[in-house]
Design a protein around this nucleic acid. Structure first.
Lengths: 137, 137
DNA sequence: AAAAATAGTGCAACACTGTTGCATATTTAA
DNA sequence: TTAAATATGCAACAGTGTTGCACTATTTTT
């Protein structure tokens, strides 16, 4: 199960890590620190949750998504990422009604014209709108 | 000068508004609340600066840019925006070295495939990389 | 199996961003 | 020039995120 993931990334297997990873495995939306805090079974210190999220981020288990609220959300990396390389450059969607952030794993970010003098490392694309569940018809 | 802008948007002409707007007119990068705080000539209350920025945002004088730090930055709207409509859907660039955020006013956000069930209102695109001044060669 | 080294957790404290309510001051319109 | 409307300053607060340090748990070494 998830234990292999930790071994693969040289992370010790602990309760909070298992629980936090489970939250992401079971969720189809991006989760923030406070989302996780509510989802966790046991109570853990706020700081420990932050550190757990950051270590997952560093190891390439999660990627960070920025929505318009300025609050960091996280989601599982679908492809093999590690501490050296993140391959998640897909589009994200934020519903303006329910505030959910969704990864469009299959929608790659379109290419942009080359910019003289600028080097590009990463591109973030966030689509804002209304998701299917929140449509009023 | 800038007074016309305030009249046009039904904002009273006050010292802080003139100063804050000047900051943006003179800056070619996006500015955060704390950037403004440092740039201002006179000292104003933090809250007043926040409110000034928000009223400019509402009236379409500024638009909000989100960089990866979660801190809101603002930049002048180039085209005629107002409280009902924002027309700024250009690409933004954030330099990973100097942290400056720049508007690429002339680079429109490319079209995306239509998503069944999702309606799109706005698209945010942030390019991260290194700007010309920070290139090491 | 015990000791040493390493890594993870909890707590206290803090910094920063942003908001609200309310009293006071300033603009603008009448 | 007064009244109404709007803007400002202050105090207080909530939320997000970080750091340092002591303590605990897990590995590795002997």
């Amino acid at each position: 199960m998830t234990d292999n993931i930790f071994k693969k990334h040289n992370l010790r297997i602990t309760d909070i890590r298992k629980e936090v990873l489970d939250c992401f495995v079971q969720s189809d939306i991006a989760l923030s620190h406070s989302d996780i805090e509510l989802l966790l079974f046991k109570e853990y210190d706020r700081v420990t949750i932050y550190r757990t999220l950051n270590s997952f981020l560093e190891k390439g288990i999660l990627h960070k998504v920025f929505d318009d609220s300025g609050v960091a959300k996280f989601a599982l990396c679908k492809y093999d990422c590690n501490e050296h390389q993140h391959n998640d450059n897909h589009v994200h969607f934020k519903c303006e009604v329910c505030s959910k952030v969704i990864c469009f794993h299959d929608m790659q970010i379109p290419h942009l014209p080359v910019l003289k003098g600028f080097s590009i490392h990463h591109i973030n694309l966030l689509v804002q709108g209304v998701c299917p569940e929140c449509q009023v018809q």
